[in-house]
Computed example of a mutant assay.
Amino acid sequence: MTQRGLTYDVDAVVLDIEGTTSATGFVVDVLYPYSRARFGALLTERADDPDVARAVAQVREELGDPRADAAAVEKALNTWLDEDRKATPLKTLQGIIWSEGFARGDLVSHFYDDVVPRLRVWHAAGTRLYVYSSGSVAAQRAWFTNSPEGDLTSLVSGLHDTENAGPKQEPESYRRIAESAGVEPSRLLFLSDRPGELDAARAAGWHAVGIRRPGEPYYEQGVGGHAEAGAFDEITISTTGSTV
């Protein structure tokens, strides 16, 4: 590993979304209300959908009530939404709703101006890009498909969420992602705005950089003992001899 300033000799970069590539405000002010308004209809009209049924079962398990009806499940989802709780069934159902909203053209995702140009540069130079977000894989795919700059999914090699990787503040989740990607931990760089996530990635042997953007929830808290950047173009990736 070679690190000079914010230069990292790695094979892959793993991206958080909310607060890192994209504004938390967009998620909270646009996407959350959109899903809140549609939970009820989803639960009553599509209860037999396998993904919906699995998420509902997970909500009931969290509540300790295997008989919880649609109204009780919706109430729990809205409570978790108010708490900004990273509950997997909440994220699954949001992902279904958001995917359909993006497909209909109701929604277009948000990326900070420095992000997409840098992702294109890194990808073109051979750096593999992955996503690890508390939002579901379905939501991530919709997010990258329906960006203001068009479909960005060709830039991304894999998508990870709390269901297929595990909680974002546990080192084991990052070990699981490294194994899935087939990349040595020391050859992975994680970008996130949350100190607990950066700590977990580092504990798993990854490199980690905290992204600090003014106005984001974790800006004042800082990134602990991690290197930090205010934008993606402050980070240079060195991969197999090329530096970008």
Rank of each mutant, 00 (worst) to 15 (best):
Y32L: 12
P117R: 06
A181K: 08
R120D: 01
G101C: 05
F39N: 05
R175A: 13
Q221G: 14
V28P: 02
A124T: 12
S35N: 09
T243I: 13
V137T: 14
A71S: 13
V13K: 10
T92L: 12
R4I: 13
V56K: 11
A53R: 13
N164C: 05
D65G: 02
A103M: 08
Q3Y: 07
Y130E: 08
A41N: 10
Y112Q: 07
E61A: 15
I211S: 03
E163C: 09
A204I: 12
V115F: 01
L43C: 11
G64K: 08
Y174T: 10
A200F: 14
G126S: 04
W98V: 11
A203V: 05
R4E: 14
A71I: 08
E100N: 11
E163N: 11
V115L: 03
T24G: 08
P171A: 12
F111V: 00
A201Q: 07
L15V: 04
D49K: 04
A178V: 03
T20K: 04
G205R: 08
A70M: 11
V30A: 07
Q94F: 10
E216H: 06
A178C: 07
D29C: 00
S136T: 06
S134M: 07
W143D: 02
I177L: 15
D16E: 01
D82Y: 06
E100D: 15
R36Q: 14
S242W: 07
Y174V: 11
K75Y: 10
H207N: 13
P148G: 12
Q3L: 13
L119Y: 03
A71Q: 14
A70K: 10
S136V: 12
S136C: 12
P185Y: 08
T44S: 14
R38V: 09
T127Y: 04
A203R: 09
L188R: 02
I211D: 01
D199G: 08
